[in-house]
Computed example of a mutant assay.
Amino acid sequence: MTKKKHLTKRQTDRIAQNEQKRLRGNKKSKTEQWDEDVLLAPEPGLVISRFGQHADIEDSSGAVVRCSMRRTISSVVTGDKVIWRRARQGTGSIDGVIEAVEDRSSVLLRPDFYDGLKPVAANIDLMIIVSAILPALSLNIIDRYLVAAEMTHIKPLLVINKVDLLTAEQHQELDQQLSQYKKIGYDYLLVSAKSGQGMPELLTQIHSGTSIFVGQSGVGKSSLMNNLMPGLTAATREVSENSGLGQHTTTVSRLYHLPEGGDLIDSPGIREFALWHLTEQEVTEGFIEFQPWLGRCKFRDCKHITDPGCAIVHAVEQQEISKDRYDSYLKILASMVQDKPNYF
């Protein structure tokens, strides 16, 4: 049995401090200073990015205004559609206030060890799961994002970057690895931000609606952004030659309008993508090829591991379900117990 992690004193103190901040709010925030007589009529807006207690809002003309938020608003993230009010006299710094957030069609949540669930972006139509052969390609990370996509009902697209570094033999091996995803209905693209390979096909996928780039640090999301939007000054860094780990290049989620149409959100890179906020049943349902076999096990409370008469294990043995995907499923279940904070 996997041993549960215990919080250190430093981690416990940080969690307590974050909780106190949430409880008392930002008492010095400018939201307390917005009186009716200094504001214009309410108008719709789109959240381009969020910075602490402030957010950049795009108005109907395309102009961007930095706003504070009413303390009654619990959450504002990139992609939110909001109702806001402009200051009668702008100062060039904080020139408006967000009054309300409209209902979201979808929201991507990321578990944070210290802060619990953190929304990343809202109203997303396509989740572009970016991986790369450098750092080493992790199918388990891909599977985690696929589970998240299924749980949030956001269509996923797998994009493998830096394929210009592959030999012909390695290219063939990669196609074999990804064929298991194609078989169960997930599309994938092999691209190179450096050479431009696959970029026209990627652009076709995102020319309408709102898409979001997600993935580990160092897989080249910002480089892909620069390729899709020439002239964009998104920061890029090389993968550390010493550690082989990706460098974080984006610190906040930001929405961009593509020249050919469609919106694209670039999200911060992460080393891992935990799923401890989900139940085991939700993770099981997140593996879409398992669904035809659910309810066919001998025992109703089957754990799909060592229980006799398990339909999913039988499907794996009969090669109806990929063993690699099943092993990834078991790894995710084990990590949920190991990574889940003991305060959650």
Score class of each variant (00 low, 15 high):
residue 10 R to V: 09
residue 228 L to M: 12
residue 23 L to V: 11
residue 116 G to T: 10
residue 18 N to Y: 14
residue 36 E to V: 10
residue 72 T to Q: 15
residue 331 K to C: 06
residue 2 T to I: 14
residue 171 H to D: 14
residue 45 G to D: 03
residue 148 A to F: 02
residue 5 K to L: 14
residue 249 T to P: 13
residue 250 T to S: 15
residue 98 I to Y: 05
residue 9 K to L: 15
residue 98 I to D: 04
residue 189 L to D: 01
residue 170 Q to G: 15
residue 248 H to K: 13
residue 115 D to I: 12
residue 10 R to N: 07
residue 23 L to W: 09
residue 135 P to N: 06
residue 283 V to N: 01
residue 210 T to W: 14
residue 297 C to P: 03
residue 75 S to P: 06
residue 82 V to Q: 05
residue 121 A to F: 02
residue 192 S to E: 05
residue 119 P to K: 01
residue 306 T to V: 02
residue 87 A to K: 11
residue 130 V to H: 05
residue 26 N to F: 12
residue 164 D to T: 11
residue 89 Q to A: 11
residue 115 D to K: 15
residue 226 N to M: 06
residue 82 V to C: 05
residue 162 K to E: 07
residue 207 H to F: 00
residue 77 V to N: 05
residue 266 D to E: 08
residue 326 Y to P: 06
residue 114 Y to V: 11
residue 29 S to P: 11
residue 172 Q to D: 12
residue 279 T to R: 02
residue 120 V to I: 11
residue 322 S to H: 03
residue 276 W to S: 02
residue 20 Q to N: 14
residue 272 E to G: 05
residue 36 E to N: 12
residue 212 I to E: 00
residue 295 G to K: 06
residue 26 N to Y: 13
residue 255 L to H: 12
residue 37 D to G: 10
residue 13 D to S: 12
residue 119 P to F: 00
residue 4 K to A: 03
residue 48 I to K: 06
residue 39 L to V: 03
residue 238 E to Y: 13
residue 1 M to S: 15
residue 99 E to Q: 08
residue 66 R to W: 11
residue 163 V to Y: 01
residue 113 F to A: 09
residue 215 G to T: 07
residue 57 I to K: 04
residue 175 D to K: 13
residue 15 I to P: 06
residue 184 I to C: 01
residue 283 V to D: 01
residue 30 K to L: 08
residue 135 P to D: 05
residue 309 G to P: 07
residue 336 M to D: 03
residue 97 V to I: 15
residue 120 V to R: 00
residue 258 L to G: 05
residue 265 I to G: 02
residue 119 P to N: 03
residue 277 H to S: 04
residue 114 Y to S: 11
residue 27 K to Q: 14
residue 275 L to N: 04
residue 245 L to M: 10
residue 186 Y to P: 09
residue 83 I to K: 11
residue 224 L to W: 09
residue 96 G to Y: 04
residue 334 A to P: 07
residue 311 A to C: 00
residue 237 R to W: 10
residue 22 R to H: 15
residue 18 N to V: 07
residue 311 A to E: 00
residue 44 P to D: 00
residue 332 I to T: 10
residue 220 G to F: 03
residue 208 S to L: 03
residue 187 D to V: 02
residue 173 E to M: 10
residue 60 S to G: 12
residue 313 V to D: 00
residue 152 T to R: 08
residue 265 I to D: 00
residue 51 F to E: 02
residue 308 P to W: 03
residue 275 L to E: 01
residue 141 I to T: 12
residue 131 S to L: 11
residue 124 I to G: 05
residue 212 I to A: 06
residue 244 G to V: 09
residue 225 M to Y: 10
residue 196 G to A: 06
residue 36 E to F: 08
residue 11 Q to L: 04
residue 292 P to W: 02
residue 344 F to Q: 10
residue 344 F to G: 08
residue 58 E to W: 13
residue 41 A to F: 13
residue 201 E to I: 08
residue 170 Q to P: 07
residue 13 D to T: 15
